[in-house]
Amino acid sequence: MLELRNITAGYDAGTVLRDVSITVPDGAVVALLGPNGAGKTTTLKVASGLLGTRSGQILVDGEDVTNKAPYQLARHGVCHVPEGRGIFPSLSVTDNIRLQAPARNFKASLGNATSVFPRLGERAKQISRTMSGGEQQMLALCHAYVSDPQYILLDEVSMGLAPKIVEEIFEYLHDLARQGKSMLLVEQYVAQALKLADYVYIMDRGTITFAGEPGEISEETIMNSYLGSLAS
């Protein structure tokens, strides 16, 4: 279980998250929704250790990992695929996978990756910056496969991609869910995310405004949460 308990966090002088608590149970997919600027990305950054907390706790399987560095959290089985393209643009596809994989397990990981993403196998030697956006995102997503994590944090992995590719990406997410991975999912494609999710959190202006199951919320709730600040 990955737990964020009463997290307050922010950048420099500004506070972004106020008292945010989120739980990702084992094997569950949790969708984190909300309008731009709600603090979704910041929440993921805190959960993976990229951003320190002001107060609150982060627990992985009951162990307190608050304010540990990302590479330490990665060793606890947390895998964060960040916003944008989570790849090293100057490195080749193979070398990207080499860095994603555990140090001792590169050969097997590479085989695993190319069987899941055949297209990456075809482009093994290519510098990743020269690939298409969809291919880059698959390479980024590859991290969730080769590092064998327990908790996968996904930040808008569908952003800027063609609908067809988005569908393909979601196929992979479903696949990961079927493998029993726990996921914390930040998504713009709300319908797709809700189909996948076991639990839903809605954030607005740095706080959790709704927590429940996908069945409990209506389109209206979502619309309100995205447009609420406009309506009021």
Binding site: P70, Y71, R75, F88, S90, L91, L99, P102, H143
Partner: peptide
């Protein structure tokens, strides 16, 4: 990789 994106490198362990 560390020049491209040190945070990502850290995320990858």
């Amino acid at each position: 990789a560390v020049v491209d994106d040190p945070n990502l490198l850290s995320l990858q362990g």
